[in-house]
Write a protein that binds this DNA or RNA. Structure first.
Lengths: 239, 239
DNA sequence: GTCTACACGTGAATC
DNA sequence: TGATTCACGTGTAGA
C-alpha cells in the first residue's frame, strides 16, 4: 500500500519509482554478495509485480480519464444547447438544464392540447366543457401510436360506459394518431340541475380517463403489428 | 507531502497519525534529555500544524462531497424528468438528456411556427407562399417582447421596402407579441412571369428577414420602457 | 480474471 | 486569505 502510493504522483516515470525502491531496500539490508543477489532477484520480482501493477493502474486511470471526458463532452453539448450560458459552473449548468427542460415540456404540453396534430409523445387529457347551448360536454384528447383496433376499442369503451360521442376529430400523421372526442352521457346521467353537479362530473372525467388510459396502454403493448402503412396523413371529421 | 499522504486513507484517526510521526522521528534522533525536549516541542508544533492541515483537509473533502452531492441530485432530477429511464449510466443519461432536449426544441419550433400564440423565445421566419389566386405572397412570422414602437417600426420598414401588407395577425400575451404578416410587393416588383422568378423572391425573403431582425433587436435593446400594461391579451386582425 | 462505473480525497487554480 | 470548482488517480463493487 505504501509503494502503491509512491507512484501515485502524476508524472513519476517507472524507472524513477524502481530506483527509489532499490535505494531504500539496499540501505536497510546487508550488502554481502549473497544478500545482494537475493535482494536483486527479489527486486526483479518486485519489478515485475510493480510493472504489472503500474500497467493495470495506468489502464485504469486512462479508462477513468476517458469516462470523465465523455461526461464533460456531454456537459459541453448541453451548455451549447442552453439559451443563457451565464453560469459556467457544472452544478448550475445542470440546474439550468432541468429548468429549461421543464419549461419546454410545459410549452409543448400547452400547445399540444390546443392543436389537432398528433405529437411524438403519448398524451391523454379529459376535461369538462360547455357547449354553445350551455349543456355539459366532456372533451377528451388522446394521442398515441396508431393501430387498427384503436378506434373500435374506443367505440366499445364508450358504448360500455353508456356515453355518446357528439363529435370526433381524428388525425393521423406518421403512424401516430390524435383523437379529440366531445362526449356526453345519457340525459338522465349528465346535465342534472341539482347542487351536486361538480362531483358526478369529476367522477365521469376520471373514469373516462382511466378507461382511455387502458385502451392506450393496450395499444402500447401491441408491438407485433408492424404498422404497415406509415407516413400517410388522413383527417377525418365525424359529426 | 509524505505525512500528508499518511492520513489520506479513509478513516485513519488523528492520534494514529501523530503516533506514527513520533515513532519515526524519535528513532532517528538522539535520545538525550535535551534533544528529546527539543523534539517534543517540535512535535507539538508539528501536531498543531498537522491539526490545522487535517482540519483544512477535512473541510475541503467535506466541501467536495457536498459539491458531488449537488451534482448527483441534479442528475437524479434529470433522470426523473426523462421518459425512458433504461440506462442508469451517468454519461448515457446525459446523452439522453441532450437527445430529449433537441427533440423538444424541434417540436416547439415546428408547432410555434403554425401557431398564433406568442412564445417565450424570440423567433423570426420568412417564407414564400402562394395565395388562393396563385399570386406570390411572403409570410413573415415574428415573435418578440412587446413595446410601443414595434408596430410603427414594422410599418416604417415595410414602407421603406415598398412592400404591401395584405393581412396581419397580431397577438399579444403576457407582454410578448406575435405578428404574422402576409406581404406582397408592388406589382411591378413581384409576380413577374419570367424564368428568373425564384432568385428575386429569395432576395426579397432574405432582405425582409434582415430588416425585421433589426427591428426585433432594436426591441431587445429598449430596456428603459417598463412595458407598463402587461398580462392583458389582445387579438387584432387587420385585413 | 478483465471491464466498467462510481465515490472518494487530494492538488491546483481561480476568485 | 479561505472558499469553491475542477481534474486526477485510486479503492471498490458489479457484470
Amino acid at each position: 500500500m505504501f509503494n502503491r502510493r509512491s507512484f501515485a504522483s502524476y508524472d513519476t516515470s517507472s524507472t524513477d519509482h524502481l530506483r527509489f525502491i532499490s535505494d531504500t531496500v539496499l540501505g536497510q539490508m546487508g550488502s554481502g554478495p549473497f544478500g545482494l543477489q537475493a535482494e536483486l532477484s527479489k527486486l526483479t520480482a518486485q519489478e515485475i509485480m510493480d510493472a504489472k501493477a503500474l500497467a493495470a493502474s495506468k489502464s485504469h486511470s486512462e479508462a477513468e480519464r476517458r469516462r470523465r471526458e465523455r461526461i464533460n463532452n456531454h456537459l459541453a453539448k448541453l451548455r451549447s444547447l442552453l439559451p443563457s450560458t451565464t453560469k459556467t459552473d457544472k452544478a448550475s449548468l445542470l440546474a439550468e438544464v432541468i429548468q429549461h427542460l421543464k419549461e419546454l415540456k410545459r410549452q409543448t404540453s400547452i400547445i399540444a392540447e390546443s392543436s389537432a396534430i398528433p405529437t411524438e409523445s403519448d398524451e391523454l387529457t379529459v376535461d369538462n366543457e360547455e357547449d354553445e347551448d350551455g349543456r355539459f360536454v366532456i372533451k377528451a384528447s388522446l394521442c398515441c401510436e396508431d393501430r387498427t383496433d384503436l378506434l373500435p376499442d374506443l367505440i366499445k369503451t364508450l358504448k360500455a360506459m353508456r356515453l355518446k360521442t357528439l363529435k370526433a376529430e381524428i388525425t393521423t400523421l406518421g403512424g401516430r394518431v390524435k383523437n379529440v372526442l366531445f362526449i356526453t352521457g345519457d340525459d338522465q346521467e349528465l346535465n342534472r340541475d341539482d347542487d351536486e353537479q361538480q362531483q358526478p362530473h369529476e367522477y365521469f372525467v376520471s373514469s373516462i380517463q382511466e378507461a382511455f388510459r387502458a385502451v392506450m396502454e393496450k395499444s402500447n403493448g401491441d408491438e407485433s403489428s408492424p404498422g404497415s402503412v406509415k407516413r400517410q396523413r388522413t383527417n377525418i371529421n365525424i359529426i
